[in-house]
Nucleic acid binder design. Sequence first.
DNA 1: CGAGTTTGACCGGCGC
DNA 2: GCGCCGGTCAAACTCG
Length: 281
Amino acid sequence: MDKTLAGTILTIDLNTNPIQNPSETPPDELIQELNRMKSENKKLSDMLTIVTTNYNDLMQTNEYENIGNFIGNNSFNHNCYDEYSSPGTPKVIKSNVSRIYVRVDPLDTSLVVKDGYQWRKYGQKVTRDNPSPRAYYKCSFAPSCPVKKKVQRSVDDPSILVVTYEGRHHHHHPDISAVSPSGVAGASSPGRIPIECSGSTPSLDHLKDTLTCSKIQKAIATTDSTEIQQLLVEKMAYSLTRNSGFTAALVAAITGRIFDEVISAENSGDIIVSNSKAFSM
DNA sequence: CGAGTTTGACCGGCGC
DNA sequence: GCGCCGGTCAAACTCG
């Protein structure tokens, strides 16, 4: 278990399995920006602000449907969800609908995605445009919870499950510890940033409940907490790992910067990581 | 025995 | 109006 921040970021890089979209153009501007910031030895908070701005721009200008999350078998993935309608239709924002992708074992025929919530399957159907069946689930944790999800294998790549969430959970995450080996949880709630903190502080709990992608910048602006900033770095790094070039640049830039701060803090006796569990893998 | 899954039937929206 | 298709229902079934 590597509990260092640098280890966390590197682990994100190793565990993610970005699938390149052929139409995707590498965010060269971001790579250059990160390299420039690192060379100028900018402060982490400054880097976050700039990266977040570019991150939001990237998310808003993508022509293809929003990202997904690419992970190993039975792991949990998380990301920042834009809420688009299905591909092929005009880019219309559809409320409370999001889609993620999960890489699974192609030989595993079960349509099960472990996201920490409890789901009840209520139907399965073979659709016209995809030979693999689509499974329908309702959230069973809270009787009144309206959230549904649909799980179906990608027609292009059977090793990828396409999970479509509809609605938002209006209850707390039922089992935050059982979600993933990384201990990162809460991402099945569309539009929310998955943050887990074993030592709950009011500020972190507030973030956990209220942060959305559009609020990242505000959060950065209103907090001096290195811990929260690091969580945001993790969040953005995860989302941007679609591009291997950018991933490498991001990891190099941010981990280099964080490592510098950690080493500096250790030398000075300051405690930077107040909640190591949030970063442990 | 209760909770979850399976699966065929049914319903409603949409295009022709 | 009709047929197609995605989504949902609900009885039967399975499992712990």
